[in-house]
């Protein structure tokens, strides 16, 4: 029966997941106090991922800051501007992209394993496995994955892959970090970045809030933010420390562990069926 087969699959993926979490993967620290809103990271990303052939000048249009933007199928990252209420001349710029969660909801949601968290920290996507159900988009708390809705035949889920290929196979930094001054986007192992972030806060308590966004949020994310203002003023959402898969997977596993409960129900109903049948014959 399907249930027992499914049970075996649960056990397997639970195993794979615990080993993945033990690794210290890559991370990125975004210092929003350093960002000048040049949007070169957007251009570099579009180049690297062949998302558009727009020249760099196209990314210098200040009108892009009028309304906060979200990622699209053609833009894996966007930089938004947030005004400071009492200082009209000053702004905070915040880069948005996939956060590369340590316990990603999208990976937990994907029924064919098209989305995966690599041991090195990147959450990657295999288009050839994908059915296009878009459950990953439903699941992502950061509302990151975008969809190629205009592609009738081979649409893909579009999101930052942390330049997986570039980092793992070419030994380079992600394209956005390569383009950006290192003070603003810092690429390193996540544990090192956490040390750095807390050092920065300690050294400049007036400059930063004592909060590394992404350290604990939803079980932690590979991308983390330093801010001078509350994150909710910067287009970032507030979250618990509880990882999203912890809300669904324990229940799913408890109910269907190794297919025992369905088998039990099957047995009970079969017994009931035979009992009522005999009663009838008497």
């Amino acid at each position: 029966m399907g249930s027992s087969v499914a049970g075996a699959a649960f056990a397997q993926s639970a195993l794979a997941e615990s080993s993945a979490n033990a690794e210290d993967g890559y991370g990125m620290l975004v210092d929003t106090t350093e960002c000048i809103g040049c949007r070169k990271c957007e251009w570099a990303c579009a180049q690297e991922n062949k998302l558009s052939d727009k020249p760099v000048e196209a990314f210098e249009d200040p009108s892009a800051f009028e309304e906060p933007r979200r990622m699209t199928a053609d833009a894996y990252t966007v930089v938004n501007r947030y005004d400071i209420p009492d200082q009209p001349a000053q702004h905070t710029f915040v880069k948005a992209q996939c956060m590369h969660c340590l316990r990603p909801a999208c990976v937990s949601a994907c029924l064919v394993g098209a989305l995966r968290r690599q041991p090195s920290g990147q959450v990657t996507y295999d288009a050839w496995k994908c059915m296009g159900c878009r459950y990953c988009m439903v699941a992502c708390p950061f509302q990151v994955p975008a969809y190629q809705y205009d592609n009738a035949l081979t649409p893909v889920v579009s999101k930052c892959n942390f330049c997986f290929n570039r980092v793992q196979n070419e030994g380079k930094m992600p394209a956005c970090a390569d383009m950006c001054p290192p003070m603003c986007l810092t690429f390193a192992k996540r544990s090192e970045l956490l040390r750095l972030a807390h050092q920065k806060i300690e050294a400049n308590p007036d400059r930063y809030l004592d909060h590394v966004y992404g350290e604990h949020e939803l079980g932690g994310t590979a991308w983390m933010y330093l801010t001078s203002r509350p994150v909710t003023e910067l287009g970032l959402l507030e979250f618990d420390a509880k990882a999203i898969p912890d809300r669904t997977e324990p229940m799913q596993h408890a109910i269907f562990k190794m297919g025992v409960p369905p088998m039990l129900l099957f047995g009970l109903l079969t017994v009931a069926m035979k009992t009522f049948e005999h009663k009838e014959e008497e």
Binding site: G2, A6, L111, M131, C133
Partner: peptide
């Protein structure tokens, strides 16, 4: 609804099974 409707059979392939997914269980059932 499926963007890649022609891959609707993928949940049947054991190497793609993702038992943590609620949708996987729904699809199989």
């Amino acid at each position: 609804d499926l963007g890649r409707f022609y891959n609707i059979w993928h949940p049947m392939i054991p190497m793609m099974w993702q038992g943590n997914s609620v949708l996987f269980e729904v699809a199989m059932c």
